[in-house]
Design a binder for these strands. Sequence first.
DNA 1: AATTTCACG
DNA 2: ACGTACGTGAAATTA
Length: 317
Amino acid sequence: MLAKLSAKHPIVENILVYRELSKLKSTYVDALPTMINPRTNRVHTSYNQAVAVTGRLSSNNPNLQNIPIRTERGREVRKAFVPRNPEYTLLSADYSQIELRIIAAISEDANMIDAFRSGLDIHTATAAKVYGVEIADVTPDMRRNAKSVNFGIIYGVSAFGLSENLGIARSEAKTLIDNYFIQYPSIKKYMENQVKFAQKTGYVQTLMGRKRWLKDINSSNAVVRGYAERNAINMPIQGTAADMIKLAMISLHKTFREHNLRSRMILQVHDELVFDAHLDEVETIKPLIIEGMRNAMPLAVPVEAEIGTGRNWLEAH
DNA sequence: AATTTCACG
DNA sequence: ACGTACGTGAAATTA
């Protein structure tokens, strides 16, 4: 973690920029063109259905689930992904806050369910709750901290991990987490119950019944055991999201067949589906995709998907 | 061959 | 006292 030292010496910034550029060049700019299939003139990834322990897909040769988007130069790489010809457009649809909606639904936490049902921005709503202020009085810093807690909760975060992530005192992080569990008591209960269930049965499972065995859940080594406990919390969340998008993919495949569409589903990136969409079909398929994704696996909270089109993968977002 | 680093959700 | 946020894959570096 060099970034932590960036204030110590000016050279660190230069090293980080160098690393960013060498990563983009070696992994994407140099590599991807060599993987174009000459017959189809495209890059074709492989999706693995039995690699990720949570039930997610993974992608290799090349990995198209980690195409850059977070930095300016990285986004230039993403622009290289374009539709097959000018009669097509790239269409991207992604689930909104799907893992938080899932934890709200399966923990049956009334407060978080209410936040989603009222259509609030979940990080703002969480900030208002943990800082005890009105929604309108949530500052950007408060929202940022609440967002980190929301993410951290899904991973089974500790006060130490949160303080590291946010660059705040551990005591402050602890207060945030304590307030979080006061505001969302059933989420705390859910986490405890997942660990208990795993200790008793040796596994945890998604809403659809996909299991992950946790052989270390009763280990006498606290580090090893802690890791298994976080797995017990996280896997049902991440795995249920994986189950949901897979069901959506099957449903949409059928729907596209039935409508004799020329548009094609071409990529899946965990909570996102990308389509090579014929221009004449865009307005037809948009609602089909949105509804296919929303209705794939009904939850006790609304499931939302956002959709966009563009001349390349970046613009489609 | 194992580890480190970094790209993504 | 101890270590410390989930899941992947690819390239470069270390040994």
